[in-house]
Simulated scan of single mutants.
Amino acid sequence: MSTFRTAQAVRTTPEGLLWEPSERWVRGRKGGVTVVDSRHPVLVWEPELPVPQYAFPREEVREDLLRPAKSPPTGRHTGSRIFYDLEVGGELLENAAWTYPATDLAGHIAFEWFRRSGHGLDHWYEEEEEIFVHPRDPHKRVDALPSSRHVQVEIDGTVVADSRRPVLLFETGLPVRYYLPREDVRLDLFEATEHSTGCPYKGTAQYWSWRSGGDVPPNIVWSYPQPLPAVAAVAGLLAFFNEAVDITVDGARLERPVTPFTATLGPRSST
C-alpha cells in the first residue's frame, strides 16, 4: 500500500511565506518565446496576497533573458531584494521577475503575470490548458451546481431577474453566486460594456451595466460565454454582484456580503 508523499504538505518560512511543490507542468511565454518550462514548480503564498504565485527552479528558466533590474522596487513580494528585468525580442520588461529571500526557496525565480499586474509574461499553461491571472489554488474549490431554487434579483426596488432554474456557483472564500438563464433576466434594463476580466477557475467574463444610473455600480452583471470545463454549467448564464443588489432565495432576502470585491464596487462615475 502506497502512502501520500508528505513533501506535498504546505510549509512555512521564517519570512511568513507558505509554499508547497506542485506536480503540474507549467510554461510561461512572452509573445512566442517560452521563458519558463518547468516540471518542478513551487506554489508560494505571500502573507499580503490572497492568491498563490509560482516560483521555478533556475534551471527551468531562460536566465539568458534576465538582466539585473535597473530600478528594483521596494516593499514588494515579501522582502524580495533581487529583481530582474526581462528582455524579449528587443522589449525590456522592468522588474518582471524576482527571487524570494527564504532559504527554502533559494534557487527559484518568480514572474509577473500580465493579466494580473499589467506587465510580465502574457501566456501561462498548466499541462496543455491556458490559465489566467494567477495559478489555481489547490486548496480552493469551485463547484457549479444546477438547482431548482427560486431566485429573484432587485435593483432599486425593480425586479430584474426571476428564475427557478439557477446554477449555484460555490467558490471557497466567496458568497454563493447565482447564475441565471438570460430568458429569466430583464437584460433590456442593462447595456453591454467593454469591461472584461479573467479568472483562473472560470475563464473570461463579459459585463453589463444598469441603464438607469443612480448609485448602482457599473458592470454589475457578468457572464462567461465560454467558461472553463470545470464550470461548464454556467455557460452564457448571468450573475449579479450580491454585494450591490438585493437577492431573494426561496422567499428569504439575503444580506449583502462584504467581500474583497466590495471596495471595487463604488458608484458609477458622474463624468
Results as ranks from 00 to 15, higher is better:
Val142Cys: 05
Pro227Trp: 07
Tyr224Ser: 10
Pro257Cys: 03
Gly120Lys: 02
Arg136Leu: 05
Asp188Phe: 10
Asn242His: 05
Val35Cys: 11
Arg5Lys: 13
Ser71Ala: 13
Asn242Phe: 01
Glu46Ala: 08
Leu189Glu: 13
Thr103Tyr: 09
Phe241Ala: 07
Ser22Phe: 13
Glu23Gly: 13
Pro72Met: 08
Pro47Gln: 10
Asp37Tyr: 11
Thr13Arg: 08
Leu43Asn: 07
His40Glu: 13
Leu189Gly: 02
Glu171Trp: 03
Gln8Leu: 15
Glu94Trp: 05
Ala205Arg: 03
Leu17Arg: 07
Ser38Ala: 10
Thr6Gln: 12
Val151Cys: 02
His139Ile: 00
Thr264Met: 12
Arg211Ala: 04
Gly214His: 07
Tyr178Lys: 07
Pro14Asn: 09
Thr271Leu: 10
Gly173Arg: 09
Phe83Pro: 03
Ala230His: 06
Thr6Phe: 11
Thr193Gln: 03
Val160Ala: 02
Arg76Cys: 08
Trp19Met: 08
His139Cys: 06
Val33Ala: 15
Thr262Arg: 08
Tyr178Val: 04
Leu265Asp: 04
Val33Trp: 09
Arg29Pro: 00
Gly90Tyr: 07
Ala144Ser: 04
Pro14Lys: 10
Ala252Lys: 13
Glu130Pro: 11
Glu63Gln: 15
Ser2Met: 13
Val258Leu: 12
Leu49Asn: 14
Phe241Lys: 02
Leu105Thr: 01
Val160Ser: 06
Phe114Asn: 12
Pro50Asn: 12
Arg149Asp: 01
Lys30Pro: 00
Trp98Lys: 02
His77Thr: 10
Leu238Gly: 04
Leu92Glu: 14
Glu60Leu: 00
Glu91Thr: 15
Leu265His: 01
Val36Ile: 15
Asp64Glu: 14
Pro225Val: 10
Val249Met: 01
Thr34Gln: 15
Gly75Thr: 02
Gly32Glu: 15
Gly266Arg: 15
Ile155Asp: 05
Thr172Glu: 07
Leu169Gly: 02
Phe111Tyr: 09
Ile155Asn: 04
Leu65Gln: 11
Asn242Gly: 06
Leu93Cys: 01
Glu183Phe: 01
Leu237Pro: 08
His139Val: 00
Pro72His: 09
Ile155Ala: 05
Leu238Trp: 00
Ser269Ile: 03
Pro135Phe: 00
Asp156Met: 06
Ala205Asp: 12
Ala239Val: 11
Val221Ala: 10
Arg81Val: 08
Glu129Leu: 11
Arg253Pro: 12
Ala192Cys: 05
His134Asp: 00
Thr6Ile: 13
Gln226Phe: 14
Pro21Gln: 11
Thr6Val: 14
Asn219Trp: 00
Ala252Phe: 05
Ala252Thr: 14
Glu59Cys: 10
Pro217Glu: 07
Ala9Phe: 13
Ala192Ile: 06
His123Glu: 15
Thr172His: 08
Thr6Gly: 04
Ala252Glu: 15
Pro101Cys: 09
Phe190Asn: 03
Arg164Ala: 03
Leu180Ser: 02
Tyr224Glu: 08
Arg256Tyr: 07
Ala244Arg: 14
